[in-house]
Design a protein around this nucleic acid. Structure first.
Lengths: 235, 235
DNA sequence: TGCAGCTCAATTGTATACAATATCGAATAC
DNA sequence: GTATTCGATATTGTATACAATTGAGCTGCA
Protein backbone atom coordinates (compact mmCIF):
# COMPACT_ATOMS: atom_id res chain seq x y z
CA UNK A 1 0.00 0.00 0.00
CA UNK A 2 1.32 3.42 -0.88
CA UNK A 3 0.60 6.50 1.19
CA UNK A 4 1.76 9.85 -0.11
CA UNK A 5 1.41 13.30 1.42
CA UNK A 6 -0.10 15.37 -1.36
CA UNK A 7 1.33 13.97 -4.56
CA UNK A 8 0.36 10.80 -6.40
CA UNK A 9 -3.11 10.92 -4.87
CA UNK A 10 -4.44 8.34 -7.30
CA UNK A 11 -4.93 5.09 -5.49
CA UNK A 12 -8.48 4.88 -6.79
CA UNK A 13 -10.73 6.66 -9.19
CA UNK A 14 -9.39 10.08 -10.13
CA UNK A 15 -12.22 10.94 -12.48
CA UNK A 16 -14.87 10.35 -9.88
CA UNK A 17 -13.06 12.53 -7.41
CA UNK A 18 -12.90 15.45 -9.78
CA UNK A 19 -16.52 14.98 -10.79
CA UNK A 20 -17.61 14.86 -7.16
CA UNK A 21 -15.63 17.95 -6.27
CA UNK A 22 -17.13 19.90 -9.15
CA UNK A 23 -20.62 18.63 -8.39
CA UNK A 24 -20.26 19.67 -4.77
CA UNK A 25 -19.09 23.12 -5.79
CA UNK A 26 -22.09 23.47 -8.05
CA UNK A 27 -24.52 22.19 -5.45
CA UNK A 28 -23.19 24.60 -2.89
CA UNK A 29 -23.51 27.44 -5.37
CA UNK A 30 -19.82 28.22 -5.35
CA UNK A 31 -19.90 27.74 -9.09
CA UNK A 32 -22.79 29.62 -10.62
CA UNK A 33 -24.64 28.65 -13.80
CA UNK A 34 -22.84 29.80 -16.92
CA UNK A 35 -19.35 29.54 -15.45
CA UNK A 36 -16.82 28.30 -17.98
CA UNK A 37 -15.06 25.13 -16.90
CA UNK A 38 -11.78 25.08 -18.82
CA UNK A 39 -10.10 21.71 -19.01
CA UNK A 40 -6.57 22.93 -18.42
CA UNK A 41 -7.63 25.13 -15.56
CA UNK A 42 -9.43 22.37 -13.70
CA UNK A 43 -6.71 19.89 -14.47
CA UNK A 44 -4.15 22.19 -12.95
CA UNK A 45 -6.26 22.72 -9.84
CA UNK A 46 -6.63 19.02 -9.11
CA UNK A 47 -3.28 17.93 -10.54
CA UNK A 48 -4.71 15.60 -13.13
CA UNK A 49 -4.49 15.52 -16.87
CA UNK A 50 -7.10 16.81 -19.26
CA UNK A 51 -8.06 13.22 -19.96
CA UNK A 52 -9.42 12.85 -16.47
CA UNK A 53 -11.04 16.27 -16.45
CA UNK A 54 -12.78 15.57 -19.73
CA UNK A 55 -14.20 12.33 -18.41
CA UNK A 56 -15.45 14.08 -15.31
CA UNK A 57 -17.05 16.86 -17.32
CA UNK A 58 -18.75 14.42 -19.63
CA UNK A 59 -20.05 12.57 -16.62
CA UNK A 60 -21.51 15.77 -15.24
CA UNK A 61 -22.93 16.63 -18.63
CA UNK A 62 -24.87 13.38 -18.56
CA UNK A 63 -26.74 14.49 -15.47
CA UNK A 64 -27.05 17.95 -16.99
CA UNK A 65 -25.08 19.72 -14.33
CA UNK A 66 -22.80 21.05 -17.05
CA UNK A 67 -23.43 21.74 -20.68
CA UNK A 68 -20.77 20.87 -23.23
CA UNK A 69 -20.69 22.83 -26.48
CA UNK A 70 -18.59 21.29 -29.17
CA UNK A 71 -15.30 23.12 -29.72
CA UNK A 72 -16.40 25.65 -27.15
CA UNK A 73 -16.02 23.89 -23.87
CA UNK A 74 -17.98 23.02 -20.75
CA UNK A 75 -20.11 25.40 -18.72
CA UNK A 76 -22.13 25.05 -15.57
CA UNK A 77 -25.62 24.43 -16.90
CA UNK A 78 -28.18 27.22 -16.93
CA UNK A 79 -31.60 25.61 -16.96
CA UNK A 80 -34.23 27.64 -18.77
CA UNK A 81 -37.50 28.40 -17.06
CA UNK A 82 -39.04 25.65 -19.12
CA UNK A 83 -36.50 23.14 -17.91
CA UNK A 84 -37.03 24.39 -14.38
CA UNK A 85 -40.75 23.74 -14.62
CA UNK A 86 -40.13 20.30 -16.07
CA UNK A 87 -37.75 19.36 -13.31
CA UNK A 88 -40.30 20.16 -10.65
CA UNK A 89 -43.10 18.47 -12.56
CA UNK A 90 -40.99 15.34 -12.69
CA UNK A 91 -40.23 15.60 -9.01
CA UNK A 92 -43.92 15.91 -8.23
CA UNK A 93 -44.51 12.81 -10.28
CA UNK A 94 -41.79 10.72 -8.66
CA UNK A 95 -41.09 11.84 -5.14
CA UNK A 96 -44.48 11.57 -3.42
CA UNK A 97 -44.77 7.96 -4.50
CA UNK A 98 -41.24 7.38 -3.31
CA UNK A 99 -41.96 8.93 0.06
CA UNK A 100 -44.91 6.57 0.42
CA UNK A 101 -42.70 3.66 -0.32
CA UNK A 102 -40.13 4.92 2.15
CA UNK A 103 -42.80 5.17 4.83
CA UNK A 104 -43.63 1.52 4.33
CA UNK A 105 -40.03 0.34 4.58
CA UNK A 106 -38.11 2.66 6.86
CA UNK A 107 -36.21 1.08 9.74
CA UNK A 108 -35.40 2.83 13.02
CA UNK A 109 -31.89 3.23 11.72
CA UNK A 110 -33.24 5.05 8.67
CA UNK A 111 -35.23 7.45 10.83
CA UNK A 112 -32.09 8.10 12.79
CA UNK A 113 -30.22 8.99 9.63
CA UNK A 114 -32.95 11.31 8.46
CA UNK A 115 -33.08 13.14 11.77
CA UNK A 116 -29.33 13.46 11.62
CA UNK A 117 -29.64 15.10 8.23
CA UNK A 118 -32.12 17.62 9.56
CA UNK A 119 -29.86 18.39 12.48
CA UNK A 120 -26.97 19.06 10.12
CA UNK A 121 -29.17 21.31 8.04
CA UNK A 122 -29.94 23.33 11.14
CA UNK A 123 -26.28 23.58 11.98
CA UNK A 124 -25.38 24.80 8.52
CA UNK A 125 -28.18 27.34 8.55
CA UNK A 126 -27.18 28.67 11.95
CA UNK A 127 -23.63 28.96 10.70
CA UNK A 128 -24.93 31.01 7.79
CA UNK A 129 -23.58 28.52 5.30
CA UNK A 130 -26.51 28.57 2.93
CA UNK A 131 -24.71 26.62 0.24
CA UNK A 132 -24.08 23.72 2.53
CA UNK A 133 -27.60 23.89 3.90
CA UNK A 134 -29.03 23.72 0.42
CA UNK A 135 -26.87 20.76 -0.47
CA UNK A 136 -27.90 18.93 2.68
CA UNK A 137 -31.51 19.68 1.99
CA UNK A 138 -31.16 18.01 -1.37
CA UNK A 139 -29.42 15.02 0.10
CA UNK A 140 -32.33 14.63 2.46
CA UNK A 141 -34.57 13.92 -0.50
CA UNK A 142 -32.02 11.53 -1.93
CA UNK A 143 -31.87 9.72 1.37
CA UNK A 144 -35.62 9.17 1.31
CA UNK A 145 -35.33 7.73 -2.17
CA UNK A 146 -32.62 5.40 -0.94
CA UNK A 147 -34.86 4.22 1.87
CA UNK A 148 -37.58 3.50 -0.65
CA UNK A 149 -35.13 0.97 -2.05
CA UNK A 150 -35.78 1.59 -5.71
CA UNK A 151 -32.41 2.18 -7.26
CA UNK A 152 -33.68 3.09 -10.69
CA UNK A 153 -36.09 5.75 -9.51
CA UNK A 154 -33.57 6.91 -6.94
CA UNK A 155 -31.12 7.68 -9.70
CA UNK A 156 -33.71 9.74 -11.51
CA UNK A 157 -34.50 11.65 -8.35
CA UNK A 158 -30.83 12.22 -7.75
CA UNK A 159 -30.40 13.95 -11.07
CA UNK A 160 -33.56 15.94 -10.48
CA UNK A 161 -32.27 17.14 -7.14
CA UNK A 162 -29.01 18.12 -8.76
CA UNK A 163 -30.76 20.12 -11.42
CA UNK A 164 -33.01 21.65 -8.79
CA UNK A 165 -29.93 23.09 -7.21
CA UNK A 166 -29.18 24.93 -10.44
CA UNK A 167 -32.78 26.05 -10.75
CA UNK A 168 -32.70 27.44 -7.25
CA UNK A 169 -29.46 29.26 -7.95
CA UNK A 170 -31.11 30.97 -10.88
CA UNK A 171 -34.72 31.48 -9.90
CA UNK A 172 -35.03 31.51 -6.14
CA UNK A 173 -37.04 34.46 -4.86
CA UNK A 174 -35.03 36.15 -2.20
CA UNK A 175 -38.04 37.22 -0.22
CA UNK A 176 -39.29 33.70 0.41
CA UNK A 177 -37.52 32.15 3.34
CA UNK A 178 -36.04 28.72 2.96
CA UNK A 179 -37.77 27.07 5.85
CA UNK A 180 -37.46 23.55 4.61
CA UNK A 181 -36.49 22.14 7.97
CA UNK A 182 -40.05 22.28 9.19
CA UNK A 183 -41.45 20.42 6.20
CA UNK A 184 -38.66 17.91 6.43
CA UNK A 185 -39.34 17.30 10.06
CA UNK A 186 -43.02 16.61 9.44
CA UNK A 187 -42.06 14.24 6.67
CA UNK A 188 -39.75 12.26 8.88
CA UNK A 189 -42.48 12.04 11.46
CA UNK A 190 -44.94 10.53 9.03
CA UNK A 191 -42.34 8.14 7.69
CA UNK A 192 -41.42 7.08 11.20
CA UNK A 193 -45.10 6.45 11.88
CA UNK A 194 -45.36 4.39 8.73
CA UNK A 195 -48.18 6.67 7.62
CA UNK A 196 -47.86 6.16 3.89
CA UNK A 197 -50.72 8.37 2.86
CA UNK A 198 -49.51 11.27 4.94
CA UNK A 199 -45.92 10.90 3.75
CA UNK A 200 -47.04 10.99 0.17
CA UNK A 201 -49.18 14.06 0.69
CA UNK A 202 -46.56 15.89 2.70
CA UNK A 203 -43.93 15.29 0.06
CA UNK A 204 -46.29 16.48 -2.62
CA UNK A 205 -47.10 19.74 -0.89
CA UNK A 206 -43.47 20.20 0.07
CA UNK A 207 -42.35 20.13 -3.54
CA UNK A 208 -45.25 22.34 -4.59
CA UNK A 209 -44.13 24.81 -1.97
CA UNK A 210 -40.57 24.73 -3.24
CA UNK A 211 -41.79 25.30 -6.75
CA UNK A 212 -43.95 28.23 -5.79
CA UNK A 213 -40.94 29.88 -4.16
CA UNK A 214 -39.37 30.20 -7.59
CA UNK A 215 -39.68 33.15 -9.90
CA UNK A 216 -39.80 31.51 -13.28
CA UNK A 217 -39.39 34.50 -15.52
CA UNK A 218 -36.29 34.59 -17.69
CA UNK A 219 -33.42 36.83 -16.87
CA UNK A 220 -29.75 37.01 -17.81
CA UNK A 221 -26.97 35.19 -16.09
CA UNK A 222 -23.22 35.29 -16.41
CA UNK A 223 -20.09 33.52 -15.34
CA UNK A 224 -17.30 34.25 -12.88
CA UNK A 225 -13.83 33.00 -12.11
CA UNK A 226 -13.20 29.80 -10.25
CA UNK A 227 -9.72 29.03 -9.03
CA UNK A 228 -10.12 29.99 -5.37
CA UNK A 229 -13.65 28.62 -5.29
CA UNK A 230 -12.35 25.17 -6.06
CA UNK A 231 -8.97 25.36 -4.40
CA UNK A 232 -10.57 24.82 -0.99
CA UNK A 233 -11.70 21.29 -1.72
CA UNK A 234 -8.43 20.28 -3.37
CA UNK A 235 -6.70 19.13 -0.19
CA UNK B 1 -25.11 15.38 -46.52
CA UNK B 2 -21.65 13.91 -46.73
CA UNK B 3 -20.94 10.44 -48.07
CA UNK B 4 -17.46 9.03 -47.71
CA UNK B 5 -16.18 5.67 -48.83
CA UNK B 6 -14.50 4.41 -45.68
CA UNK B 7 -11.86 6.98 -44.80
CA UNK B 8 -12.04 10.42 -43.19
CA UNK B 9 -15.35 9.59 -41.57
CA UNK B 10 -14.97 12.33 -38.97
CA UNK B 11 -16.71 15.45 -40.14
CA UNK B 12 -18.73 15.63 -36.94
CA UNK B 13 -18.96 13.89 -33.63
CA UNK B 14 -17.08 10.63 -33.71
CA UNK B 15 -17.93 9.63 -30.16
CA UNK B 16 -21.64 9.95 -30.71
CA UNK B 17 -21.47 7.85 -33.82
CA UNK B 18 -19.71 5.02 -32.06
CA UNK B 19 -22.08 5.23 -29.11
CA UNK B 20 -25.09 5.17 -31.41
CA UNK B 21 -23.76 2.21 -33.37
CA UNK B 22 -23.13 0.25 -30.19
CA UNK B 23 -26.49 1.19 -28.74
CA UNK B 24 -28.23 0.09 -31.90
CA UNK B 25 -26.40 -3.22 -31.87
CA UNK B 26 -27.46 -3.75 -28.28
CA UNK B 27 -31.05 -2.74 -28.92
CA UNK B 28 -31.28 -5.10 -31.84
CA UNK B 29 -29.86 -7.89 -29.71
CA UNK B 30 -26.86 -8.38 -31.92
CA UNK B 31 -24.75 -7.81 -28.84
CA UNK B 32 -26.03 -9.86 -25.96
CA UNK B 33 -25.72 -8.98 -22.26
CA UNK B 34 -22.35 -9.88 -20.83
CA UNK B 35 -20.42 -9.38 -24.06
CA UNK B 36 -17.01 -7.86 -23.47
CA UNK B 37 -16.48 -4.59 -25.29
CA UNK B 38 -12.73 -4.22 -25.66
CA UNK B 39 -11.52 -0.72 -26.39
CA UNK B 40 -8.92 -1.67 -28.97
CA UNK B 41 -11.28 -4.03 -30.71
CA UNK B 42 -14.04 -1.47 -31.10
CA UNK B 43 -11.61 1.25 -32.02
CA UNK B 44 -10.24 -0.90 -34.81
CA UNK B 45 -13.72 -1.66 -36.11
CA UNK B 46 -14.74 1.97 -36.36
CA UNK B 47 -11.29 3.37 -37.14
CA UNK B 48 -11.12 5.62 -34.14
CA UNK B 49 -8.75 5.82 -31.23
CA UNK B 50 -9.37 4.40 -27.81
CA UNK B 51 -10.00 7.92 -26.59
CA UNK B 52 -13.17 8.09 -28.62
CA UNK B 53 -14.22 4.56 -27.76
CA UNK B 54 -13.77 5.20 -24.07
CA UNK B 55 -15.96 8.29 -24.23
CA UNK B 56 -18.63 6.34 -26.06
CA UNK B 57 -18.52 3.50 -23.56
CA UNK B 58 -18.75 5.87 -20.63
CA UNK B 59 -21.71 7.51 -22.25
CA UNK B 60 -23.43 4.14 -22.62
CA UNK B 61 -22.49 3.24 -19.08
CA UNK B 62 -24.35 6.28 -17.86
CA UNK B 63 -27.62 4.99 -19.29
CA UNK B 64 -26.68 1.58 -17.99
CA UNK B 65 -26.50 -0.10 -21.34
CA UNK B 66 -22.97 -1.15 -20.51
CA UNK B 67 -21.28 -1.79 -17.23
CA UNK B 68 -17.71 -0.64 -16.69
CA UNK B 69 -15.58 -2.49 -14.16
CA UNK B 70 -12.43 -0.72 -13.19
CA UNK B 71 -9.31 -2.26 -14.72
CA UNK B 72 -11.52 -4.95 -16.21
CA UNK B 73 -13.27 -3.24 -19.05
CA UNK B 74 -16.75 -2.62 -20.40
CA UNK B 75 -19.46 -5.22 -20.86
CA UNK B 76 -22.95 -5.13 -22.21
CA UNK B 77 -25.05 -4.76 -19.07
CA UNK B 78 -26.86 -7.75 -17.61
CA UNK B 79 -29.72 -6.42 -15.52
CA UNK B 80 -30.59 -8.59 -12.56
CA UNK B 81 -34.17 -9.65 -12.04
CA UNK B 82 -34.42 -7.00 -9.41
CA UNK B 83 -33.29 -4.33 -11.81
CA UNK B 84 -35.69 -5.71 -14.38
CA UNK B 85 -38.58 -5.34 -11.99
CA UNK B 86 -37.51 -1.84 -11.08
CA UNK B 87 -37.30 -0.78 -14.70
CA UNK B 88 -40.85 -1.85 -15.35
CA UNK B 89 -42.11 -0.35 -12.13
CA UNK B 90 -40.60 2.94 -13.18
CA UNK B 91 -42.14 2.64 -16.61
CA UNK B 92 -45.53 2.02 -15.07
CA UNK B 93 -45.06 5.11 -12.99
CA UNK B 94 -43.98 7.37 -15.84
CA UNK B 95 -45.41 6.22 -19.12
CA UNK B 96 -49.16 6.17 -18.51
CA UNK B 97 -49.05 9.77 -17.37
CA UNK B 98 -46.96 10.61 -20.38
CA UNK B 99 -49.41 8.92 -22.73
CA UNK B 100 -52.18 11.00 -21.22
CA UNK B 101 -50.20 14.12 -21.84
CA UNK B 102 -49.51 13.01 -25.40
CA UNK B 103 -53.20 12.45 -25.99
CA UNK B 104 -53.87 16.03 -25.01
CA UNK B 105 -51.21 17.51 -27.28
CA UNK B 106 -50.83 15.29 -30.32
CA UNK B 107 -51.12 16.95 -33.71
CA UNK B 108 -52.27 15.19 -36.88
CA UNK B 109 -48.63 15.09 -37.91
CA UNK B 110 -47.77 13.25 -34.71
CA UNK B 111 -50.46 10.65 -35.36
CA UNK B 112 -49.03 10.19 -38.81
CA UNK B 113 -45.59 9.56 -37.38
CA UNK B 114 -46.91 7.04 -34.87
CA UNK B 115 -48.81 5.13 -37.53
CA UNK B 116 -45.70 5.13 -39.63
CA UNK B 117 -43.81 3.56 -36.75
CA UNK B 118 -46.37 0.81 -36.44
CA UNK B 119 -46.22 0.15 -40.15
CA UNK B 120 -42.45 -0.21 -39.96
CA UNK B 121 -42.81 -2.59 -37.05
CA UNK B 122 -45.08 -4.76 -39.14
CA UNK B 123 -42.62 -4.70 -41.98
CA UNK B 124 -39.76 -5.76 -39.76
CA UNK B 125 -41.81 -8.52 -38.19
CA UNK B 126 -42.90 -9.85 -41.56
CA UNK B 127 -39.29 -9.81 -42.66
CA UNK B 128 -38.47 -11.90 -39.63
CA UNK B 129 -36.11 -9.23 -38.32
CA UNK B 130 -37.06 -9.46 -34.68
CA UNK B 131 -34.18 -7.32 -33.51
CA UNK B 132 -35.26 -4.43 -35.65
CA UNK B 133 -38.88 -4.92 -34.70
CA UNK B 134 -38.00 -4.78 -31.05
CA UNK B 135 -35.99 -1.64 -31.52
CA UNK B 136 -38.81 0.03 -33.39
CA UNK B 137 -41.25 -1.00 -30.75
CA UNK B 138 -39.13 0.78 -28.19
CA UNK B 139 -38.84 3.87 -30.32
CA UNK B 140 -42.60 3.96 -30.50
CA UNK B 141 -42.72 4.56 -26.77
CA UNK B 142 -40.02 7.18 -27.05
CA UNK B 143 -41.99 8.92 -29.75
CA UNK B 144 -45.00 9.17 -27.48
CA UNK B 145 -42.84 10.71 -24.81
CA UNK B 146 -41.60 13.23 -27.34
CA UNK B 147 -45.15 14.15 -28.25
CA UNK B 148 -45.91 14.71 -24.59
CA UNK B 149 -43.32 17.47 -24.85
CA UNK B 150 -41.62 16.89 -21.53
CA UNK B 151 -37.95 16.62 -22.27
CA UNK B 152 -36.87 15.69 -18.78
CA UNK B 153 -39.29 12.82 -18.38
CA UNK B 154 -38.69 11.80 -21.97
CA UNK B 155 -35.05 11.30 -21.21
CA UNK B 156 -35.88 9.09 -18.28
CA UNK B 157 -38.22 7.04 -20.41
CA UNK B 158 -35.58 6.76 -23.08
CA UNK B 159 -33.14 5.15 -20.69
CA UNK B 160 -35.87 2.89 -19.34
CA UNK B 161 -36.70 1.72 -22.85
CA UNK B 162 -33.05 1.05 -23.48
CA UNK B 163 -32.74 -1.03 -20.35
CA UNK B 164 -35.97 -2.80 -21.20
CA UNK B 165 -34.29 -4.03 -24.32
CA UNK B 166 -31.65 -5.71 -22.20
CA UNK B 167 -34.27 -7.11 -19.87
CA UNK B 168 -36.15 -8.58 -22.79
CA UNK B 169 -32.98 -10.10 -24.16
CA UNK B 170 -32.46 -11.87 -20.87
CA UNK B 171 -35.87 -12.69 -19.54
CA UNK B 172 -38.34 -12.84 -22.40
CA UNK B 173 -40.47 -15.98 -22.35
CA UNK B 174 -40.28 -17.57 -25.74
CA UNK B 175 -43.78 -18.93 -25.58
CA UNK B 176 -45.43 -15.54 -25.26
CA UNK B 177 -45.85 -13.93 -28.63
CA UNK B 178 -44.70 -10.38 -29.10
CA UNK B 179 -47.94 -8.97 -30.39
CA UNK B 180 -47.25 -5.39 -29.47
CA UNK B 181 -48.57 -4.01 -32.70
CA UNK B 182 -52.13 -4.48 -31.58
CA UNK B 183 -51.65 -2.66 -28.31
CA UNK B 184 -49.75 0.07 -30.06
CA UNK B 185 -52.50 0.52 -32.59
CA UNK B 186 -55.14 0.92 -29.91
CA UNK B 187 -52.94 3.43 -28.15
CA UNK B 188 -52.53 5.54 -31.25
CA UNK B 189 -56.27 5.46 -31.72
CA UNK B 190 -56.96 6.83 -28.26
CA UNK B 191 -54.26 9.46 -28.66
CA UNK B 192 -55.68 10.50 -32.00
CA UNK B 193 -59.10 10.82 -30.36
CA UNK B 194 -57.61 12.93 -27.61
CA UNK B 195 -59.04 10.46 -25.12
CA UNK B 196 -56.63 11.09 -22.28
CA UNK B 197 -58.17 8.68 -19.83
CA UNK B 198 -58.16 5.84 -22.29
CA UNK B 199 -54.62 6.53 -23.44
CA UNK B 200 -53.38 6.44 -19.88
CA UNK B 201 -55.16 3.19 -19.13
CA UNK B 202 -54.09 1.54 -22.33
CA UNK B 203 -50.47 2.42 -21.74
CA UNK B 204 -50.70 1.11 -18.23
CA UNK B 205 -52.08 -2.25 -19.23
CA UNK B 206 -49.70 -2.45 -22.16
CA UNK B 207 -46.70 -2.19 -19.90
CA UNK B 208 -48.21 -4.58 -17.40
CA UNK B 209 -48.65 -7.03 -20.25
CA UNK B 210 -45.07 -6.63 -21.31
CA UNK B 211 -43.92 -7.19 -17.78
CA UNK B 212 -45.99 -10.33 -17.37
CA UNK B 213 -44.40 -11.76 -20.49
CA UNK B 214 -41.08 -11.87 -18.64
CA UNK B 215 -39.74 -14.76 -16.68
CA UNK B 216 -37.98 -13.05 -13.84
CA UNK B 217 -36.10 -15.93 -12.35
CA UNK B 218 -32.33 -15.70 -12.38
CA UNK B 219 -30.30 -17.72 -14.79
CA UNK B 220 -26.79 -17.59 -16.20
CA UNK B 221 -25.70 -15.59 -19.18
CA UNK B 222 -22.51 -15.42 -21.17
CA UNK B 223 -20.75 -13.43 -23.82
CA UNK B 224 -19.91 -13.96 -27.48
CA UNK B 225 -17.66 -12.45 -30.11
CA UNK B 226 -18.51 -9.24 -31.88
CA UNK B 227 -16.46 -8.22 -34.90
CA UNK B 228 -18.87 -9.31 -37.64
CA UNK B 229 -21.86 -8.26 -35.59
CA UNK B 230 -20.65 -4.69 -35.62
CA UNK B 231 -18.90 -4.58 -38.97
CA UNK B 232 -22.22 -4.27 -40.77
CA UNK B 233 -23.04 -0.86 -39.35
CA UNK B 234 -19.58 0.53 -39.89
CA UNK B 235 -20.14 1.94 -43.37
C1' DT C 1 -14.84 56.26 -37.43
C1' DG C 2 -16.23 51.87 -38.77
C1' DC C 3 -15.80 47.61 -40.82
C1' DA C 4 -13.66 43.69 -43.42
C1' DG C 5 -10.23 40.47 -43.41
C1' DC C 6 -6.40 38.35 -41.37
C1' DT C 7 -3.07 36.50 -38.10
C1' DC C 8 -2.23 34.37 -33.91
C1' DA C 9 -2.93 32.73 -29.27
C1' DA C 10 -5.82 29.87 -26.65
C1' DT C 11 -8.78 25.91 -26.22
C1' DT C 12 -10.85 21.76 -27.50
C1' DG C 13 -10.87 17.14 -30.32
C1' DT C 14 -8.21 13.16 -31.29
C1' DA C 15 -4.31 10.11 -31.39
C1' DT C 16 -0.43 8.05 -29.38
C1' DA C 17 2.84 6.84 -25.62
C1' DC C 18 3.70 5.26 -21.15
C1' DA C 19 2.29 3.16 -16.52
C1' DA C 20 -0.49 0.13 -13.77
C1' DT C 21 -3.28 -3.79 -13.41
C1' DA C 22 -5.35 -8.05 -14.59
C1' DT C 23 -5.39 -12.39 -17.26
C1' DC C 24 -3.73 -16.69 -18.65
C1' DG C 25 -0.54 -20.36 -19.11
C1' DA C 26 3.57 -22.82 -17.97
C1' DA C 27 6.64 -24.58 -14.74
C1' DT C 28 7.22 -26.50 -10.34
C1' DA C 29 6.16 -28.62 -5.95
C1' DC C 30 3.44 -31.82 -3.60
C1' DG D 1 -2.59 -35.68 -11.35
C1' DT D 2 -3.67 -31.53 -8.96
C1' DA D 3 -2.75 -27.30 -7.12
C1' DT D 4 0.07 -23.12 -6.70
C1' DT D 5 3.32 -19.68 -7.88
C1' DC D 6 5.39 -16.90 -11.05
C1' DG D 7 6.00 -14.55 -15.32
C1' DA D 8 4.74 -13.12 -20.04
C1' DT D 9 1.00 -10.94 -22.40
C1' DA D 10 -2.86 -8.30 -23.06
C1' DT D 11 -5.91 -4.61 -21.53
C1' DT D 12 -7.13 -0.65 -19.13
C1' DG D 13 -5.86 4.05 -16.68
C1' DT D 14 -3.48 8.25 -17.32
C1' DA D 15 -0.50 11.60 -19.42
C1' DT D 16 1.28 13.88 -23.25
C1' DA D 17 1.61 15.25 -28.15
C1' DC D 18 -0.43 16.76 -32.25
C1' DA D 19 -4.43 18.58 -35.17
C1' DA D 20 -8.43 21.43 -35.76
C1' DT D 21 -11.38 25.04 -34.44
C1' DT D 22 -12.56 29.26 -32.24
C1' DG D 23 -12.36 34.03 -31.02
C1' DA D 24 -9.91 38.18 -30.21
C1' DG D 25 -7.20 41.75 -31.52
C1' DC D 26 -4.81 44.02 -35.09
C1' DT D 27 -4.14 46.16 -39.42
C1' DG D 28 -5.52 48.39 -43.46
C1' DC D 29 -8.73 50.59 -46.21
C1' DA D 30 -12.94 52.97 -47.36
Amino acid sequence: MQAEPTSTPKPQNATQKVADALALAIHEHRLMPGTKLGEDEIGEIYNVSRTVVRAALQSLAHVQLVEIQRNKGAFVASPTTREAREVFEARILLEPRTARSAASRATPRDIEILNDHIAQEHLALDAGDNGRALNLSGRFHIEIARIADQDTISQFIETLIARSSLVIALYWRRESALCESHAHHALVQSIADGDEQNAEELMHSHIVDLNSALDLRDRPVQAQNLRELLQATDQ
